[in-house]
Nucleic acid binder design. Structure first.
Length: 184
DNA sequence: TTCTTGATCGGT
DNA sequence: CCGATCAAGAAT
């Protein structure tokens, strides 16, 4: 399970969002890996994207989104749920919305949904801004040989973003049954 | 300093 | 449909 180089995550957010499908997200806790295959992502394309947090400008929270590609951007929504993103660069990032359990996740624990997968992997806000090319948190090429069948649709929960809410920036592997419920 | 608002989820 | 629950940003 070898981490992808940081350069894998740089470039166009839509492209990175698609290419992350099929990759493994890995969290190492006390020497044990918890991992899942990424099956659903959303692209937040930059400061001009009104659904993107960086559209509020550079703040303490969004600073990491303007940093180098391949770093983690984690934030708390609704005071309850953590979301993980891969920074693409220039204020853009890719939200990971669902994974298929691969290793170290107990049977029956749900991983379909941004808040559920972060809980299943045991992520915390302290992982914010860490590079995703080494433990404790990294992304590796998935072992699956079969490529994902990619379907695009509008992003979820961003109705406030006007016309940006309609853009087909959500991507999922339609072969997977672990895609988040909203909009399957 | 206080006020408002969520890139959600689980239970009615 | 509704309420939980809290960090960050905006307003004061």
């Amino acid at each position: 399970m070898k981490p992808l180089p940081l350069s894998f995550h740089s470039g166009d957010a839509v492209k990175v969002a698609k290419s992350l499908l099929g990759m493994d997200l890995v969290h190492v806790v006390r020497g044990r890996a918890r991992a899942g295959r990424i099956v659903e992502t959303e692209a937040y394309v930059g400061p001009h994207d009104l659904a993107c947090h960086s559209s509020k400008g550079r703040t303490q929270r969004t600073e990491v989104m303007f940093g180098p590609a391949g770093h983690a951007y984690l934030f708390l929504v609704y005071g309850l749920h953590l979301c993980v993103n891969v920074v693409v660069g220039d204020g853009a990032a890719v939200l990971i919305r669902a994974i298929e359990p691969r290793e170290g996740i107990p049977e029956g624990v749900r991983t379909d949904g941004p808040g559920r997968l972060t809980r299943a992997l045991g992520l915390s806000l302290s992982l914010n801004a860490l590079p995703l090319n080494q433990p404790p948190l990294f992304i590796a090429r998935g072992e699956s040989v079969t490529p994902p069948h990619i379907t695009a649709s509008p992003r979820i929960g961003v109705d406030y973003a006007g016309e940006w809410a309609q853009k087909p920036f959500r991507f999922h592997d339609r072969r997977s049954s672990f895609v988040s419920h909203a909009g399957r």
